[in-house]
């Protein structure tokens, strides 16, 4: 019986014939109906990605941001490259995402993008739900920017760049799954890829469902198969004690040189990163 029809997630063994620059060992990509990859406890999956550049917000020691940071006010994040008429409607998460994406990508064009955010513009969505519940009309502008790929779309419009973009969310492991997505999409035909991960704390109403301390931050990583510097990524399925930060922060600390390696534990897995210049 077809695995999907039977309601079970399908497991795909990733091919080991891969383009130069990407190494894989024992890597499994999961195509699941749910957000939780059903990997057996104790199992480890790992791969590496060729890192060309990165950028973070806040710009100074992103990992050290106060954990209760509220979203930055509109003027605090420089996105002057976006036309003011396009910029005026953007929320804090999109502004942080566009800031790090633009700084990381520079003048490069045609680079595919993975936009990742656990919550996206959840505050905007919640405001629309309140309007609906009150029998009010929903703001068309708010709706247009509440969809998960809105930041990627605005980035494309602002830079006149038609490179393909995907937008993903995967609970507390959103950054990790964006790294898996990046690994899956890098190829000889598309040797560069920009990963952007941005989030702000979920609105108060949702706090009962959030187990980590959330902060406003964004991280951009540019991968390029022609780079020799490697970001090694490992995921261990486990049910250990979850970390008390969002997943991007320890990785940002590693990139900033604040530590030789980094790890983060979520509800279902532990992730580890190291960097080398091999």
């Amino acid at each position: 019986m077809d695995a999907l029809a039977s309601g079970r997630p399908r497991l795909h063994r990733m091919t080991h014939e891969k383009p130069d620059g990407v190494t894989t060992r024992n890597t499994t990509l999961i195509e699941s109906r749910g957000l939780t990859p059903p990997i057996a406890p104790g199992r480890m999956d790992s791969f590496s990605l060729p890192l060309a550049a990165w950028a973070a917000w806040p710009t100074h020691a992103p990992g050290c941001a106060a954990p209760t940071d509220s979203p930055p006010p509109p003027g605090a994040v420089d996105i002057a490259f976006v036309d003011p008429m396009l910029r005026r409607r953007l929320g804090p998460v999109a502004r942080m995402a566009l800031n790090v994406a633009h700084r990381c990508l520079g003048e490069r064009t045609g680079v595919p993008m993975v936009f990742a955010s656990r919550h996206g513009e959840l505050a905007r969505t919640l405001a629309m739900l309140h309007d609906l519940a009150a029998g009010e009309e929903v703001s068309p502008a708010a709706f247009s920017l509440s969809v998960h790929n809105a930041a990627a779309g605005v980035f494309s419009i602002a830079r006149h760049d038609t490179a393909p973009a995907t937008a993903i969310a995967a609970g507390d492991e959103t950054l990790g799954m964006a790294l898996v997505e990046a690994r899956a999409r890098l190829s000889e035909a598309h040797p560069q890829l920009l990963l952007v991960c941005a989030d702000a704390p979920a609105p108060e109403l949702y706090q009962d469902d959030i187990t980590t301390t959330e902060s406003a931050h964004a991280l951009a990583l540019l991968f390029d198969l022609h780079q020799s510097r490697r970001l090694h990524v490992a995921r261990h399925a486990s049910s250990g004690t979850p970390s008390n930060s969002m997943m991007s922060l320890p990785l940002a600390d590693l990139l900033a040189g604040h530590r030789p390696d980094a790890a983060w534990s979520g509800t279902h897995a532990r992730w580890e990163w190291t960097l080398d210049d091999a």
């Binding site: 008429m85 409607r89 009010e136 009309e137 703001s139 068309p140 502008a141």
Partner: peptide, 17 residues
Amino acid sequence: LGLDSIDALELGVALRK
């Protein structure tokens, strides 16, 4: 002024309200 199509929809909602 340089408004766009989303502004047109938004303005329609505002005038109605």
